[in-house]
Nucleic acid binder design. Structure first.
Lengths: 231, 231
DNA sequence: AAGTTGCGTCAATGGTGTTGACATAAGGAC
DNA sequence: GTCCTTATGTCAACACCATTGACGCAACTT
């Protein structure tokens, strides 16, 4: 990791050769756009530099390394998804909406999500999200420890599904296609004798190609409801 | 993707310069070992070639590209984890053991798991695993469609958690440390007024640094049990 | 107007996957 | 046992990648 290249406060605003003035925010914006527009390979320091109209190495004046940049971009996504989220109704609906927001936010930026869903950004937007999530669990009547444990189980399940589906979406087209078609091709051709269970559900197997997020979320929330009633 | 470089049946067994005779199996073995022993950056075609004592490009005679190799390695891991698994007791215990097997198998190979948990290997070991998993759901009394849907929710939740935790484990040490310490450092220093919920559970927040897999699994299985009774 | 120094630029290092041409030895045919 | 074919290992090259240290300009401070 580079040391001392990233000042906290920036005083001199020197434009690049092409005239743009770099900003931490501008870079994050551009990275987000770039990762979205072009394919899975789009996000590299060199391309980012080209898109910003600056030398690639200029980015190291703003972020220690690509990991640092990634966390900043990830936090931006969290901010987007949680923007204006202030759950008012019952806690379960709040959790459901939070789950949907996180999931769809990550689905909108699959490439970043696949790389960052398991990270702790340690930044402002993530702080707010955890604050809200734990607040919802507390509203469900859970004690301090149970609230934290259940929030962890909840958010990790949501993030896990988001990461899985995002990684699938971020796959190069021919690979994504190959994985998806497995359920209508390879799995359909297995010998019945060796795979009796698969033979029986043959016509339902294509369901495996779709996201199971909604089903898993329903199961998880119903379990939390039971726990809340029992506790 | 290279075309026609990977014959199905191999007749001529020509040794490399260092004397070893390459095999699809040998390569997968070596990749698995390499990814485990050394750091997160260990698995590259060049290192693999060096470890096998052959030219890196020789691998392209056995696998179309690194993605093809990755899927082969992933399927090997599935095979390892499901080896000798033949659930006999009640379906819920069977699912629980399957979840533990998958999770710990992936935890043993975090680098590969992080890259492949969301893939469909379309290979023998995966076929068997799905066969067993859907069989367990059927044993729980679910109809064809419900069995497939619930199996998808189940396995994706398990894989999601496995992927999350594996990716965390596979992180470079200083990054993993940074993410982990967030809960005992950054999250402990937030101002109480702005984050009242976090302030209240301050002493329980370090729980967030641990895996939530067991808790999430308990919740999921209890929900499936309720569904089975209701349906 | 002069002096510091922040920050954009350049060039270089050592990594990556992948490919096409090449050479050689393995195995089949006789 | 010898010849032929060709599978397969090797080599060199291409086009990328992140990162760093030296350099020098220009934007602020004084």
């Amino acid at each position: 990791m580079a040391t001392g290249r990233v000042p906290v406060e920036r005083r001199r605003r020197r434009p690049t050769k092409t005239g743009t003035v770099l900003t931490e925010e501008l870079i994050v914006d551009c990275a987000l756009r770039l990762a979205g527009e072009h394919g899975a390979e789009a996000l590299s320091v060199r391309r980012l530099g080209a898109a910003l109209g600056c030398d690639p190495s200029a980015l190291y004046r703003y972020f220690h390394d690509t990991d640092d940049l990634l966390l900043a971009v990830a936090d931006r996504i969290i901010g987007e998804t949680m923007h204006d989220f202030a759950p008012e109704g019952d806690w379960l609906s709040g959790l459901r909406e939070m789950a949907h927001r996180v999931y769809s936010g990550y689905s909108r930026h699959p490439r970043i999500a696949a790389m960052a869903a398991y990270r702790v950004t340690r930044r402002a937007h993530e702080f707010r999200a955890v604050e809200i999530g734990i607040g919802l669990m507390r509203r469900g009547g859970f004690g301090k420890e149970a609230a934290v444990r259940h929030y962890a189980a909840f958010i990790d399940t949501v993030l896990g599904h988001a990461a899985l589906d995002a990684a699938h979406l971020a796959l190069a087209p021919e690979r994504r296609g190959g994985d998806t078609r497995a359920w209508t091709e390879a799995y359909q051709d297995l010998p019945d004798a060796a795979y009796p269970q698969l033979a029986e559900v043959r016509h339902e197997l294509p369901l495996m190609a779709h996201s199971s997020f909604e089903n898993a979320l329903d199961l998880l929330l119903s379990a939390l409801e039971s726990q809340a009633r029992a506790g």
